[in-house]
Design a protein around this nucleic acid. Structure first.
Length: 701
DNA sequence: TCTCACACCTTTGAAGTGG
DNA sequence: CCACTTCAAAGGTGTGAGA
């Protein structure tokens, strides 16, 4: 085996990459996923909570990984491989579990009304070969976080269903089966990790995330690894090594997801608890060219970059209107948007602010008390340091009072959700010193918060296709909900905060990811509705092959680590279940045969637990009805069915789920016997050997 | 349905100026 | 040294022709 040595791991980067995350029981992890007897990991005698790392020079990664994966698949003990792989498998770092902190995260979608306007019109999101930003930008406000604890915020976009669409007769219609999905990347917010206080102090935006239909796009792996990558690019948040675009299929429907992970180190991500939040109104259909004039006009009216196309502008808008959109009527949102003049000084880096900051698009309710630190009137998600920007900010007129709906969009899995209204900080206040990590971006003056009293509960798991037999498994964390986050090396993308860590790992990650993109599940202790759906994107590939990377920044995440956040059993079970539930997985030849496709419904009905708590983090206020209307109006025949489609299913199967195992922070000292038992269940589940499970799955919609 | 060049626009950071 | 202005470059938009 001739393996060139290059791209050595940079000492001190703590680059932990281990395809078979040995969290507590690495052998179990791998075998569980693969459905084999535990392979032998001679080099992995790890402490219970230790993290083993496969520290490999980049060029070594691919061949060694291939062998390791192959061995795992065939049940060959790794010890018999007799090459560098075993030598490289070694404990790299012991990761202490996140200390228990009391938090009750709630997430509010910003500019919700604008999103709803788009949604009602059959939102189209343009994707280009070079990558195109999302508009409206995905922005959220977090509350309920532990001020002292550190969190990593992520976002990803997963297929919403298994269909391809076409725009016919002014409406979107199903045009067939979906094309295979490319592995999806997790976009890690560049400010991660940051304290809860920092996150809560401002709007968290992911507007830098780009969408592309270019499957050969490699930028995601380049920025941090490229020799041209300069630390100076990190100075300005806006210029940080931009993550690679998320690859989407044109004419397919997607659902953005937001994840909160309590972790103070990116290395702990795989072991940490995920809370996933889904906002159905952010669902969109990717297009390479706008099909719906209403959407086009809506975006033109709201996106400062498109000012040249506005009716009042001097661009080609008038011409265009005369030819294509002559019949277009002013859109509601347009009315909600600030005039051109108003927007000029606003949104610098955040086009949406142009609209949202005016407050015209906000359907707010009661104002909420502003935190002491207050919020600046203008919000730049990635503010410019330039004098010009500062100058402009100074000259900006004070925004209208932000009135936030106290409603919560999400609920905590901890059952701690008392249903009390969220008190979100006002964003319009004196511009205080923003935490460095979060940049200087001020709050958006106006946010649209919705009541998210609805909580996803275990009942949603049914929707995710959890086999009844598994539901009762202790390890089968209902919150994990069956929908593991698809943490794939290639799934991760971030703005650069972790860029350094990735040094030297680029080739490794790229090769591994490229060669074996697959499904990696990350158990979300608190999984959102869409959990199941998350698989759709990344799960198109074999579960065991998913060696995901923190794509753009080169952060390598153990796919199994992702699967087994902590304890691993939770992850594995969730991953397996999610795989079964994933519509995308369904498309996968390997999994297709044994697991009927489960349709993902992003609008599950919250099912409160007996104790009054809710298991799933994501709660979408009024989503069901709203989305249903939107679908009815915009989608002629969405196979995804409405939000309520899964209600019956959820209800029918909810009894099989156990809520007792829900824990955001599973204790490290889990009983080994229990783990073994869990493992066996996982193995059966993953390997598809359990006929009962299959039967039960087949009964799923 | 997609790609591309294009015009128009915003954003960004550096350079310059003045207090 | 700071605040501010100016400028050019980079980059984000939708358009419309052509493939």
């Amino acid at each position: 085996m001739n393996i060139p040595m290059r791209d050595p791991v940079i000492p001190g980067t703590s680059m932990a990459y281990h395809p078979f995350l040995p969290h507590r029981a690495p052998d179990f992890a791998m075998s569980a996923v693969l459905g084999h007897q535990p392979p032998f990991f001679p080099a992995l005698a790890l402490p219970p909570n230790g993290a083993a790392a496969l520290s490999l020079p980049g060029a070594l990664a691919k061949p060694i990984m291939d062998q390791l994966v192959g061995a795992a698949e065939t049940g060959i003990p790794f010890s018999s491989l007799g090459h560098q792989a075993a030598a490289h498998l070694r404990p790299l770092k012991t990761l202490e579990p996140e200390e228990e902190v009391e938090d009750d995260p709630k997430v509010h979608l910003e500019a919700k009304e604008l999103w709803e306007q788009f949604h009602k019109r059959g939102t189209e999101m343009v994707i280009t070969k070079s990558g195109r930003r999302m508009f409206p930008p995905f922005k959220v406000r977090c509350t309920g976080l532990d001020k002292k604890a550190k969190y990593i915020l992520l976002m990803d976009i997963v297929a919403a269903d298994d269909c391809r669409y076409k725009f016919h007769n002014s409406r979107w219609m199903v045009a067939g089966k979906a094309d295979p999905e490319m592995p999806k990347r997790m976009y890690i917010h560049p400010d991660s990790p940051a304290t809860g206080e920092q996150w809560m102090s401002k709007v968290v935006t992911f507007h830098k995330l780009k969408l592309t239909n270019n499957i050969s796009d490699k930028h995601g792996f380049v920025s941090a690894f490229s020799p041209f990558f300069s630390p100076s690019s990190l100075r300005c948040p806006c210029r940080r090594g931009s993550p690679g675009p998320t690859i989407l299929n044109s004419m397919h429907k997607y659902q953005p997801r937001f994840h909160i992970v309590r972790a103070n180190d990116i290395l702990k991500l795989p072991y940490s608890t995920f809370r996933t939040y889904v906002f159905p109104e952010t669902e969109f259909i990717a297009v390479t060219a706008y099909q719906n004039d209403k959407i086009t006009q809506l975006k033109i009216d709201n996106n400062p970059f498109a000012k040249g196309f506005r009716d009042t502008g001097n661009g080609r808008r008038e011409k265009r209107l005369g030819t294509r959109c002559s019949g277009s009527q002013p859109l509601c949102v347009a009315d909600l948007c600030p005039s051109e003049g108003d927007s000029d000084a606003d949104s610098k880096d955040d086009p949406l602010l142009e609209a949202s900051e005016s407050g015209k698009i906000s359907t707010t309710t009661a104002p909420t008390p502003a935190p002491a630190r207050g919020s600046p009137p203008k919000s730049h998600f990635f503010p410019s340091d330039s004098a010009a920007s500062r100058s402009r900010e100074r000259t900006e007129k004070a925004p209208p009072d932000s009135r936030h709906s106290p409603a919560t969009i999400s609920s905590s899995t901890r059952g701690g959700l008392s249903g009390e209204e969220l008190k979100s900080p006002l964003r319009d206040g004196p511009k205080g010193d923003e935490p460095r990590l979060l940049g200087k971006e001020p709050f958006a003056p106006l946010t649209v918060q919705t009541d998210s009293t609805a909580h996803l509960s275990q009942g949603h798991l049914q929707n995710l296709g959890f086999p009844p037999g598994l539901a009762g498994q202790q390890f089968f964390n209902p919150l994990g909900n069956g929908h593991p986050l698809l943490l794939h090396p290639g799934q991760f993308a971030m703005g650069g905060a972790f860029s350094g860590m990735a040094a030297g790992m680029g080739p490794l990650l790229a090769t591994v990811s490229g060669a074996s993109a697959g499904v990696s599940g990350l158990d979300n202790t608190v999984m959102a509705t869409a959990a199941a759906q998350g698989l759709s994107g990344a799960s198109a590939l074999p579960f065991h092959l998913q060696q995901h990377v923190l794509a753009s920044q080169g952060l390598a995440m153990s796919p199994f680590g992702s699967l087994f956040p902590y304890p691993y059993t939770y992850m594995a079970a969730a991953a397996a279940a999610s795989s079964a539930a994933s519509s995308s997985v369904h498309r996968h030849p390997f999994l297709n045969a044994v697991r009927p496709r489960l349709r993902y419904s992003p609008y599950p009905l919250p099912v409160p637990l007996p104790d009054g708590s809710s298991l799933l983090t994501t709660a979408l206020p009024g989503l069901a009805s709203a989305s249903g209307e939107a679908k009815a109006a915009g989608l002629a025949s969405s196979p995804g069915a409405g939000p309520l489609d899964s209600a019956s299913d959820l209800t029918s199967r909810s009894s099989t789920l156990s809520s007792g195992s829900v824990s955001l922070s599973p204790k490290l000292g889990a009983d080994k016997e229990a783990a073994t038992s869990e493992l066996q269940n996982i193995q059966r589940l993953v390997s598809g050997l359990d006929p009962k499970q299959d039967r039960s799955r087949s009964g799923s919609p």
